[in-house]
Amino acid sequence: MTYKTPDGPADCKPKADVCVVGAPWHAADIDGLCGGPAPLQSIHVIAQPATGGDPGATYCLAWTGSSDGAGKDATLLMNAAGYQCGAYLVGTDGQVINADGTSVFSDTPQYCEGDYPGTRMTYPGVLDFPNEGGAQPPTYVCVAENAGA
């Protein structure tokens, strides 16, 4: 089967490559091909800015490369330069700041189609804050992988 990136050339890729969370490959019925929407991904925030939740700020994740098998570790950055970001926190529409002025953070799981429907580039995530010792509840977001990082 042939797949393509949203704005790039067509190529042949194995189904496993197309269905992995964060993959840029496009398929018309990706949910049918992959057995449903992208699953919720756990992200352990090991460092975060002093202030958070400002709806007028952009947020992104700098991946640390570490994982405990149940989720990936990341540093949460606010208003950071794009080269520092492995992924952005976005609204369900894929925008880094919600059009209605609300925060991209939620207390309920999100459906995350984003700017690139038919791909796995945007997916639902849940942020946990292990350094807070459970004092901060999990926060649900939509994560958009940075294809240029």
Rank of each mutant, 00 (worst) to 15 (best):
A38T: 09
L127Q: 05
A147M: 12
A57V: 02
T92R: 04
A57W: 09
G32C: 08
D73K: 12
A70Y: 12
A70T: 14
V45C: 00
A50F: 09
D68W: 06
A10D: 11
V96R: 13
T122K: 06
I43M: 07
G32E: 00
Y88H: 11
A27S: 12
P130R: 10
A27M: 04
G94L: 10
T122S: 13
V141N: 03
L33S: 04
T64C: 09
V104Q: 02
S106F: 04
H44R: 14
I43T: 09
P55Q: 12
L89P: 06
D93C: 04
L61R: 00
C19H: 10
P24H: 05
G8D: 02
K13A: 14
K72N: 12
G65M: 08
V90H: 05
D31N: 15
T102R: 13
D54I: 04
G86Y: 02
A149G: 13
F129L: 04
P14I: 11
K4R: 15
I97P: 01
D107A: 13
D29G: 06
T5M: 00
G65V: 07
M1V: 13
A10K: 11
S42E: 13
P24I: 04
G134H: 08
V126L: 10
A74S: 05
E132Q: 15
W25Q: 07
D7M: 12
S106Y: 10
D107L: 05
A50W: 06
A47Y: 01
P117E: 07
A50Y: 08
D11G: 00
P124H: 11
D93I: 07
G56Q: 13
D68A: 09
Y88W: 15
A135C: 02
Y123S: 10
Y116C: 00
G69P: 04
G114R: 00
A80L: 00
G118H: 07
C60W: 02
K13E: 10
T108W: 01
G65A: 12
D100H: 09
K72G: 05
G53S: 08
D54H: 11
V20S: 13
P55M: 09
V126G: 04
A23I: 00
V21C: 01
G8H: 09
T119Q: 04
P117K: 12
Q136H: 08
T102G: 12
Q84A: 12
D93N: 15
Y111W: 04
A38I: 03
P14C: 09
Y140T: 06
Y116N: 14
L89Y: 01
G56W: 03
C60S: 10
Q136M: 14
P14M: 09
G69Q: 10
G125F: 06
S42W: 10
C19E: 03
V143P: 03
A80P: 01
